[in-house]
């Protein structure tokens, strides 16, 4: 059983922009590795280089943030788990945005990192609030499906299955899948192509 994830609390980091892809989160050259160790320091490396210190991850007021606040379709593109791994290793424990790409969100769940969505108006309010007052602590409460800040308490969208997996500590799916036991073999061998299309 993995750890139960009920709430994530900490300061926020506002990363504006839509359709931020996983190549930007972790450029492909850092995928030349056989472990995920050390990926944290390379998160958004090329974007940060080009922003010359102005990137959200380099702004002093966001240092030590636990919750990354993003726009629409965050994490699109490549399935590389290196992307959430690098952000997790850079200190983030949750993502709040307008929407997330599917594979990225699935990878996050498999690491115990919640991705929750806000209505566009709420997201804009939260981004403004955190930029104005980056010292404030945010609370993502998965039980209540809310995120609280000085801007108030907002409804946070999260898929039922994802929420349950995080709340019950079953987000590391291997153990859950193994519980099916011989049913796996039974389903597999019933498939004509696994059985070799017998006559």
């Amino acid at each position: 059983m993995a750890a139960v994830v009920e709430r994530v609390e900490g300061r926020g980091c506002v990363l504006r922009g839509n359709d931020i892809d996983t190549d930007r989160i972790i450029p492909a050259r850092f995928l030349r590795c056989v472990t995920f160790d050390g990926l944290g320091e390379h998160a958004f490396e090329d974007d940060r280089e080009q922003a010359k210190g102005d990137h959200a991850l380099d702004q002093e007021q966001f240092a030590g943030a636990r919750i990354l606040i993003v726009g629409e379709n965050f994490g699109c593109g490549s399935s590389r788990e290196h992307a959430p791994q690098s952000l997790m290793r850079a200190g983030f424990g949750a993502f709040v945005g307008q929407s997330f790409a599917e594979i990225f969100a699935g990878n996050c769940t498999a690491l115990g990192l919640p991705c929750v969505t806000l209505e566009p108006g709420d997201l804009a309010t939260l981004m403004d609030s955190v930029e104005l007052d980056p010292e404030q602590s945010l609370v993502l409460d998965l039980t209540a499906r809310t995120i609280s800040s000085r801007a108030g308490t907002m409804a946070a969208g999260v898929r039922d299955g994802t929420r349950m997996a995080l709340l019950e500590g079953t987000w590391n799916a291997t153990a859950v899948l193994l519980e099916a036991g011989d049913d796996i073999e039974q389903t597999g061998t019933r498939l004509p192509y696994v059985a070799g299309f017998p006559g």
Binding site: G106, R159, A173, T174
Partner: peptide, 20 residues
Amino acid sequence: FGIGTSQVRDVLATQCLAMA
């Protein structure tokens, strides 16, 4: 469909995935 590395582990270990 494409999957991440933790899901590659799931398939190696169980030949299954948890999917919505």
